[in-house]
């Protein structure tokens, strides 16, 4: 049982870290980014190929992958989404189109092969429990990243401007903030967060073009559970879903381990769209 809880928390760390980008982008731009999971997949392939090609430690790849993902995000917002800023239907089709595009370009490139980084970082035993190094590093990173994002949003000038824009686009425009630029920055930052997650997940997961699809559903669940736009909410939501998956896989049936949080997610979506930790009506809120 202790092992189940430990692995649930470690899984929660993974689900949390893949969700920061989504919640940041939604909180600021109000775009539901269907391409989220496929961006994660692109980041994972980047990390994989670069680390193989340069024969360097995977975690060092963060120095390259994160800026690249930032640029990719900037390009998406600047050249695609900014053209349909007031048209939610078209945003839906553009981000869904990107999801299909990224997945199938990678499918065409890899011909559907599976890749995994053959590095065994081993485990650490604590008493009778076993912790996987890769997942432990990820958990620590998830917590640190949440703290850094909160510090950035609450204690820097740019973070303050992003929060202002996320609260009220019109008012922010009136007081002289450059809304369009801040949107581009926010999408870039969100994508950079996805880049961080991608590098951390590369040693843990098998990489293939559709790997992002499950993550996009998980991160939607996490973000809606934790409250749209809330960083601490994403951390908590990730933990809850990780624990639920781990426990229900153990208590019900391994094939049905995802059913419980699918259902939980749907329940939350229907009855408290602001999330468990959000205030009612905060789907109109902003980043916190």
């Amino acid at each position: 049982m202790g092992q189940i809880i430990i692995s649930g928390i470690l899984l929660g760390g993974i689900y949390a870290i893949v969700s920061y980008g989504l919640t940041l982008i939604f909180g600021v731009i109000r775009v539901i980014n269907f391409a989220h999971g496929s961006l994660l997949m692109v980041g994972m392939f980047m990390a994989y190929y670069l680390s193989k090609g340069m024969n360097l430690n995977i975690y060092l790849m963060m120095l390259i992958v994160v800026p690249l993902m930032f640029i990719l995000g900037v390009l998406i917002q600047k050249y695609l989404l900014s053209k349909v800023i007031n048209e939610p239907d078209m945003q839906l089709f553009v981000t869904f189109g990107l999801l299909l595009l990224f997945e199938n370009v990678m499918l065409a490139v890899t011909k559907g092969e599976f890749f995994s980084l053959d590095m065994n970082m081993g485990t650490i035993p604590i008493g009778s429990l076993v912790l996987d190094w890769g997942r432990l590093i990820n958990l620590v990173a998830a917590i640190v990243l949440a703290i850094l994002l909160l510090l950035f949003l609450n204690h820097t000038k740019i973070g303050w401007a992003i929060r202002a824009v996320s609260q009220n686009r019109y008012a922010a425009g009136i007081i002289g903030l450059r809304v369009e630029r801040l949107y581009i920055l926010a999408f870039g930052l969100g994508s950079a967060c996805i880049g961080i997650a991608a590098v951390l997940l590369t040693p843990i997961y098998t990489i293939f073009p559709h790997v992002g699809f499950n993550f996009v559903i998980v991160s939607f669940a996490v973000v809606i559970l934790g409250g749209l736009g809330s960083i601490p909410g994403a951390l908590a939501g990730g933990m809850i879903i990780g624990l639920l998956e781990s426990l229900s896989g153990y208590l019900i049936a391994p094939e049905l381990n995802q059913i419980v949080w699918y259902l939980l997610f749907l329940l939350v979506l229907f009855f408290r769209p602001a999330g468990l930790f959000g205030i009612a009506g905060s789907e109109e809120g902003g980043v916190k």
Binding site: V84, F93, F96, G97, L100, M106, A108, P209
Partner: peptide, 23 residues
């Protein structure tokens, strides 16, 4: 057979173009 997914690459590009320019 050679490059799986190419059909959807074409369609997703079309979808994005339509959504941006020919709503």
């Amino acid at each position: 057979g050679v490059r799986p997914g190419l059909n959807i690459v074409v369609f997703s590009l079309l979808l994005i173009i339509v959504a941006l320019f020919f709503k």
